[in-house]
Amino acid sequence: MTKRQYYVPQGGLPPQTQLLTDRAVFTEAYAVIPKGTFSDIVTSALPFWDKARFWVLARPMTGFSETFSHYIGEVAPGGGSTRPDTASGVQSVVFVVDGEVALTINGTEHRLETGGYAYIPAGAEWSLRNDTGAAARFHWIRKRFQPVEGLDAPDAFVINENDLTPISMPDTNGVWATTRFVDPEDLRHDMHVNIVTFQPGGVIPFAETHVMEHGLYVLEGKAVYRLNQDWVEVEAGDYMWLRAFCPQACYAGGPGPFRYLLYKDVNRHMPLEL
């Protein structure tokens, strides 16, 4: 399999001469956070993390993300955490986009290189450290697990995107494909974090309108995306949040593939209380 390139934020601060006009949009139905907003001054520190900083892309709040949080973490050499998450009942996905980390889950150590993906179940004991000589960067998606009586909790697993073959969507001649890290038939999971790829000219040919909430981080390429009633241009490094039932479609303009990391909530009844 061909090794992939992933856009990685580097921080810094724009010069005083830069124009203020940007593509950032925040509405009741969707948000677009362009790559230019990932500066040093918007990073967050987290408890019990050493030599690390985080860009927070999504968090539960009224009128925005309701089911998940999404960070991009940057860990300097020698940094990491033996107590990465202080919340209980929370599951995580870690996806490495630059460098290498040592991830330990329930006493078993795994080396995650670029493209490495880990699912960490709620209640697992885990730690992450960077014992290399270069910074490591990764996506970290968190969701409170929704147990169901009669279904076992999902197991931890580690894999690399480069070891998986994308699955083409029906009747698309391979221009629209999804790299699935979890079997869609496995109802133990209440979230999926996949990678979606469109070849140049590929489209979502209708306005998807569905109950699943989405977070999309553009890993590679560019496209024009339909969000609610608007068409917006997005490129590698941009982030999109889509509220449940927000109409969505896209057109991949090329010259290379358009790829994004996609979160969605799945496989559970709808809560009947607000």
Rank of each mutant, 00 (worst) to 15 (best):
Q5K: 08
G12C: 06
G12Q: 10
P14H: 14
P15D: 12
P15I: 03
Q16K: 12
Q18G: 00
T21A: 15
R23V: 03
F26M: 09
T27G: 03
A29H: 15
V32M: 05
S39Q: 15
D40Q: 07
I41N: 14
T43H: 05
L46P: 00
F48C: 01
W49N: 00
R53A: 07
F54C: 07
V56A: 10
M61G: 03
G63Q: 13
S65P: 01
E66V: 00
S69V: 00
G73M: 01
V75F: 03
V75S: 05
P77N: 12
R83E: 10
R83N: 13
D85M: 10
T86Y: 10
A87K: 11
S88R: 11
G89E: 11
G89Y: 14
Q91C: 07
F95C: 01
V96Q: 04
V101H: 06
N106K: 07
N106M: 08
E109S: 15
R111Y: 02
T114V: 11
G123Q: 08
E125V: 06
L128V: 10
D131T: 12
A134E: 13
A136V: 00
W140Y: 13
I141P: 01
K143S: 06
F145V: 00
Q146S: 06
V148F: 08
L151M: 08
D152P: 05
P154N: 06
A156F: 04
V158Q: 05
D163F: 06
P166E: 07
P166K: 02
P170W: 09
N173I: 00
G174A: 12
W176F: 15
F181C: 06
E185D: 13
M191Y: 12
Q199T: 11
P200E: 06
G202Y: 03
V203S: 07
I204D: 10
A207C: 01
T209I: 11
T209M: 14
H210V: 14
V211Y: 06
L216R: 03
Y225W: 15
R226C: 04
E235F: 02
Y239H: 13
Y239C: 06
L242Y: 06
C250R: 04
P257E: 13
P257A: 14
F258E: 02
R259M: 13
H269G: 04
P271D: 12
P271R: 14
L272F: 12
L272R: 13
L274T: 10
L274R: 11
